[in-house]
Structure formats: C-alpha cells, structure tokens
C-alpha cells in the first residue's frame, strides 16, 4: 500500500458518501425506500421508483449473480492506440440479491471461466489507504 494509487478515483459526494464509507468498513450499503421498499443504485436524493424522500441506508448481503460479462482483450480506446496495460481482465454487471446492478470486475477466475448467472459474492478490495472497491468473486 506504499505505492501511490494512480487509477481513477470515485467522485465522492454528499449523496454517495455513505456508500464509499461503507466499503471502507467492508460493508456494502445502499439506500432503501421506506415507502415502496426499493433498494437502489446509484444513491440519489429520493427514491427513483416512487419519489419518496423517506429512505434509510441498509447493509446488503454482498451476494448476487453475474448478469452480463465481457473479457477485455482490448477496447475501443486500445483499438485507437491507447495502451492495454491498466485494462482490467473483465467487466461484469452484477445483479445483487436485493435487486440493484453494479458494474465491477470479477476476481479469482481464469480466462474463459465466467458464466452468465454465476453466483458471486463481494470482495472488499482495499486499493488505497482511503479507498475500497467492491469487486466480486465466484461464490
């Protein structure tokens, strides 16, 4: 952790601060609507389903499944000459047990092993002194 972290940092705002602070404590947390029960991502000032302002932050199980995935051999940027180093092995869209979907990376898999519908669980990746990312691994 002595190496400086040079990758893109999240934009932490008043809206999503509990989410990022939760990851620092190794807790996956998102807002839940008191009125319609929706649990949603990205954190926003009111429930995007029923527009209620009444919500609380709840702890999620960190479990879910792979809704969609792509192994990144390259991207539109690398096709145009951008370097491939720093490109993650894969991009996954995880559907959490509680409903919302997150874009992330799957760790602990070899190329060719990712499958749609694969059960996964969150991995708290402490990438820097003050930054933890929510990656996933096969459950």
């Amino acid at each position: 952790m002595s190496e400086p972290y040079t990758k893109m940092l999240p934009g932490i705002s008043n809206l999503n601060r509990p989410y990022w602070e939760g990851l620092r404590r190794h807790v996956l947390t998102l807002p839940e609507c008191d009125d319609c029960g929706l649990i949603w991502y990205a954190p926003s000032p009111w429930c995007p389903k029923c527009h209620s302002r009444n919500f609380k932050w709840i702890e999620l199980t960190g479990k879910g499944h792979v809704n969609a995935w792509s192994e990144l051999k390259g991207t539109h940027a690398t096709l145009l000459g951008a370097p491939t180093d720093g490109l993650p092995d894969n991009a996954v869209e995880i559907t959490l047990e509680e409903g919302p979907r997150l874009i992330s990376n799957l760790v602990g898999v070899e190329p060719g092993e990712i499958r749609t519908g694969m059960p996964v669980t969150v991995v708290y990746d402490d990438v820097a002194e003050d930054l933890t990312l929510a990656r996933f691994k096969p459950a």
């Binding site: 999240p10 539109h76 940027a77 874009i103 990376n105």
Partner: peptide, 14 residues
C-alpha cells in the same frame, strides 16, 4: 472508470 471501464464499447459487449 473506477473499475477500469471508461469506454462505450463495454456496455455494448455486455
């Protein structure tokens, strides 16, 4: 981009 995904093609690939 926090997860290294900063181009538009990845969403199409998904």
């Amino acid at each position: 981009p926090v997860y290294g995904i900063d181009t538009t093609d990845v969403g199409a690939a998904l």
